[in-house]
Simulated assay, not measured.
Amino acid sequence: MKRAVLLYSSREGQTKKILAHIEQELEGYQCDTLDLHQVDGLDLSKYQKVVIGASIRYGKLNKALYTFIDQHLDELRASKTFFFCVNLTARKEDQGKDTPEGSAYIKTFLSKSPWQPEVIGVFAGALLYPRYNLFDRFMIRLIMSMTGGETDTTKEVEYTNWEKVSLFAQKIAKSS
C-alpha cells in the first residue's frame, strides 16, 4: 500500500481539520498524521507523498516549520511534496488572496525557505473568537475590523472552502 505523511502546525486545529479532509480524499494511501511540533526522528523516505500544512498567526508561520524544513531538507527535496498555508486573509477569494500567487504569506515563505514544494495551496481558516484568550480575541478583532472581517467576538466562523481543499487533495492523489 502507498503511504503518505500529513504534517501540520496549527493553533486552534483548523489546519489539522483540513488535513483530515485531505486524508479522506487520498484513497489507496495509508496516511500518518503528525503534529509538526512533536515529530522527532521521522524518516520521510518511507512515504510516497509528504503533505505539510501550516497556519499563520499574526502574519507569521510557526518557527517549528522552518526548523523541520532545515532538519529534513534533503529528504523533502527527494520526495513528492505538497504544502498549504491556512490564514484568514485567504477568505478574500475575490481578491486572489487564496492563491499562491496572491498570498503575501506564500511569497514570504518561498523567499525564506530553502525547500520549494511541488504543489502549494492557500486556504482560509476559521475565526474562533470564543476559544481565544483575552489578548488574542482583542488583537484578532482589531485586525478583522481593519480588514473588513467579522468583529462579533461571540461568533465562530469557518471560512474554509472545502471544495478547494478537495481539488488540492485530488492534485496530491494524481501526482506521480
Rank of each mutant, 00 (worst) to 15 (best):
I172A: 05
K112V: 01
T89Y: 11
V50D: 03
K164T: 00
L34A: 07
F84E: 00
S111Y: 06
G148H: 06
K60W: 04
K92C: 11
R137C: 03
L128R: 15
T151A: 07
V50P: 04
E27L: 14
G149D: 12
K97H: 11
S113V: 07
S113R: 06
R141G: 11
K60T: 14
K49E: 03
A4E: 10
K164L: 07
A4R: 00
L6M: 05
Y58S: 08
D43M: 11
S176R: 08
F168C: 01
V157P: 00
F135I: 14
Y47Q: 10
P130W: 06
K80S: 13
G96Y: 02
D40P: 00
Q30L: 15
R141T: 12
S55I: 07
R91P: 00
Y66F: 14
R137E: 02
T154P: 04
G149F: 12
D98Q: 04
G28F: 12
E118V: 04
E101I: 00
C31L: 08
F109S: 09
Q116A: 10
D136A: 08
D152L: 06
C85I: 13
L7S: 03
K174R: 14
Y66C: 04
A173N: 12
K107P: 01
F83V: 07
R131D: 15
D40A: 13
G53R: 05
G41R: 07
R57I: 01
C31P: 03
I172H: 01
S175L: 08
M146C: 10
N62C: 02
T108L: 11
P117Y: 06
L167Y: 08
K97A: 15
L61E: 06
R3V: 09
T154D: 13
I69L: 04
E93L: 01
A20Q: 15
K174A: 15
Q170I: 02
I106F: 07
D32H: 12
F84C: 01
F83N: 05
L128P: 01
D98V: 05
A54K: 09
S9E: 14
I120C: 04
S9P: 08
I56E: 09
G148C: 08
S55A: 14
Q71W: 05
K174T: 14
K49I: 00
R3C: 10
I52E: 04
P114N: 03
I22G: 03
S9Y: 15
T154H: 14
A78R: 11
S55F: 00
Q30I: 14
T108F: 06
T89W: 00
V165T: 04
T67K: 15
A90D: 05
G96H: 02
R3W: 06
G125N: 02
C31A: 10
R11S: 12
K92T: 05
R57C: 02
I143R: 08
